[in-house]
């Protein structure tokens, strides 16, 4: 595992200043620029409303293979909704989402779009992994079964082979000894790491994280962020909604600010933190950093 991100800032806790980044963030600025691949998530003019509440207004964004994008923005700005739309947990009202080679939620037939059925959407979802704020582990099965359930029961892969992989994943998230524990026996940070392993077990091409550390006690945040930084170093394409600016500095290729259902700033971390263009970003940064 990589060196921990200590003192990762959090809206509720004293945060670092921009001029004096913590060790991990300093390491981040000197990290080698990685080569990004072809576009793997293409979001075009996406609209989403809940009743009269227009939560996403014309969101467009392209994410390339291996890229790590951090999305931030204040509560209610539509961050979770965007992730849920990408993973088809919500259906979009307009626009297009292409991810991992799929036209998410639809099929093209004679130039027209046909909404997919449940089973077809499920097939697309297998290529994306999602990590939730509240972990959402399956409480009725053990840790290893949480990880093995989808590959074994859905992909019908041989148990022994999947089990070996699941053990590797558990080692990767630093919990090799917790294989037979039940979710309720784990701390929040451990549960979230199992949740990451569960998502990885399907070998997704893109990982989506919705505030993976905001339900955690402060002392557990870095153990989860470490795993995520590791994952980014291994070339995983990641879209991460988080307010952990230390993570953004350490791992993000791009930071995006959402406001009122729109993307108002989109920049590499250095520029995002030191030279933001949007007033919204300035306000957001001043709030998050001057606590």
């Amino acid at each position: 595992m990589t060196q921990g991100i200590q003192n990762a800032p959090h809206p509720e806790r004293p945060a670092m200043t921009i001029d004096a980044p913590p060790p991990a963030a300093r390491a981040a600025t000197s990290r080698p620029t990685k080569a990004l691949g072809a576009p793997i998530v293409l979001i075009e003019n996406v609209q989403k409303a809940f009743g009269d509440n227009h939560v996403l207004r014309d969101v467009s964004m392209t994410i390339r293979q291996g890229e790590v994008v951090v999305i931030c923005g204040r509560s209610g700005s539509g961050k979770s909704t965007l992730l849920r739309c990408i993973d088809q947990l919500e259906t979009i009202d307009g626009g297009t989402i292409r991810a991992a080679g799929h036209l998410m939620g639809f099929r093209e037939k004679n130039g027209k779009r046909v909404a997919l059925r449940d089973a077809e959407i499920a097939r697309q979802q297998r290529d994306l992994g999602m990590v939730f704020q509240n972990f959402n582990l399956f409480p009725h099965v053990s840790v290893i079964e949480n990880i093995m359930m989808a590959p074994v029961r859905i992909l019908k892969r041989p148990r022994a082979e999947v089990k070996a992989e699941a053990r590797e994943l558990l080692a990767r998230v630093g919990l090799p000894e917790k294989e037979n524990a039940y979710p309720r026996q784990l701390s929040g940070g451990q549960q979230q790491r199992v949740a990451i392993a569960r998502a990885l077990a399907m070998k997704p091409q893109v990982m989506l994280f919705d505030e993976p550390t905001s339900a955690l006690d402060p002392e557990m945040i870095s153990e989860v962020l470490d795993v995520m930084v590791d994952l980014s170093h291994q070339g995983m394409t990641m879209i991460v909604v988080t307010h952990e600016m230390g993570f953004a500095r350490a791992a993000a290729d791009r930071v995006v600010l959402m406001h009122g259902g729109e993307i108002v700033e989109e920049a590499p971390p250095e520029q995002f933190f030191t030279n933001p263009r949007s007033e919204h970003t300035k306000l957001f940064l001043s709030k998050i950093l001057s606590h």
């Binding site: 449940d118 939730f132 582990l137």
Partner: peptide, 22 residues
């Protein structure tokens, strides 16, 4: 909990699989 359904969908379970397994 509703999150269980989300989690089950996110790993690609169909309605039947979600019901039966989760």
């Amino acid at each position: 909990d509703k999150g269980q359904n989300d989690a089950a969908r996110s790993v690609g379970m169909t309605w039947r699989e979600r019901m039966y397994l989760v």
